[in-house]
Simulated assay, not measured.
Amino acid sequence: MSNINRLKDKLQHLTSIVGLAGHEDKVINYVKNSIPNHDVKVDNLGNVTVKLNTSKDEDPLRVMVFAHMDELGLIVKRIEENGFLRVERLGGIPEKSLAGQSLVIDTGEKQWQGIIGTKSHHITPENEKYSVKRVNDIYADFGFRSKKEVMDAGIRIGTPVAYSRQFFSNDSIVFSNAIDNRVGCLALLELIERLEGQHLPCELYIVFSVQEEFNLRGVLPAVRDIKPHVGITIDLTLATDTPDLEGVADIQFGAGPSIATYTFHGRGTLGGLIPNPKLVNHVRLVASENEIPLQDAAFIGMLTDASFAQLENDGIAFVDLGYPARYTHAPVESVDLHDVEKLIQLTEKLVHSFNKGFNVKRG
């Protein structure tokens, strides 16, 4: 089996798991079962930490590489007497993608399939044909006939509702739900496997984080515990090689991983990351020395786990490394696994480059 096909097979397993923010338990168990030979710590929020290469140095360079396990979706906010469900967003769900969308609820005992209801086209008024309904105006239909049937199925107020599971591909280009950020989880699992038995110049902490799609702060307990000197976030970046994004940026499928030189939400949280310049230059140098292509990215409207984690302790040098993804936060996203493979290779080389003398002090 080729490396790309092996990655594809692993990714299909990861994206088949329903694991919304705050409800990541099945992903947590998958990660733990995937690395049985390692000491795994799970904190009370659900962050999974794997420590590699305990250093004998008095104060070793601590490096943290992390990616979030959770996906975005909806929650049940009201159950109608006739069995229909009213929902609320859990994360940045684009309302334009919801009409007619197929959904899944995993109660632990059973998976229930449903859809977002849409008014029959034949009787839709002209003024509604080109409008987007807000999440507060939509409903989900899971085929229940009464509120009692819903409750008997184990569905309650607050139950998570996910996009239906889908997975298909054309060679290395994969289409699936939850590409964001199960690809990051795939990269971490691959990194652990490839570093098996190797001596590292640093203490390495691999963290699978929680609740990124909710408020980006779920990783903070792990950061406070590890107290890293250097951190690498692995998450998507926005591929802009589709017809509707021409001229927005130059991030392309097949051109390798990205390094984010600037991210800023611009709304609400006002979070973002301007990465440590010395760390950025180091990443570029390692990529160049190993002939790994690297795309520069700068976006408003994006955030990652690093946005608030960088402010912990004495301030931490973080950098966002990404895989280009199309159709982000939509029911089906897309990624080129050749970019993911190069991202894993770059991360492995970077881990070997971080030694006790590595300096990211500003000024």
Rank of each mutant, 00 (worst) to 15 (best):
G272E: 07
V50R: 07
Q310K: 15
G73M: 06
L343G: 12
G184V: 09
L191P: 00
I179M: 10
T233M: 10
N313K: 11
I35A: 13
E333V: 08
L72W: 00
V65F: 00
E193V: 00
E291D: 15
E246R: 14
T237E: 03
D336P: 01
K51H: 09
L11K: 10
F168G: 04
G301E: 10
L204F: 08
E58V: 12
V248F: 14
P243N: 11
I93L: 11
G254K: 04
E246C: 05
V174H: 07
F253M: 12
T269P: 00
H282D: 02
P221S: 03
G154D: 02
F175M: 14
L236Q: 04
S120W: 04
E128V: 05
V248H: 10
T263I: 11
F214L: 14
T240C: 14
N37C: 06
Q113K: 15
H13F: 03
G73F: 06
E58N: 13
G197L: 04
L200G: 07
F358C: 08
C202G: 07
L346V: 06
V135A: 04
I292W: 03
E333H: 03
V50S: 08
N215T: 02
G231C: 09
E333K: 07
N215E: 03
K148G: 00
D305T: 06
T237H: 02
G114E: 08
G114C: 11
S102P: 09
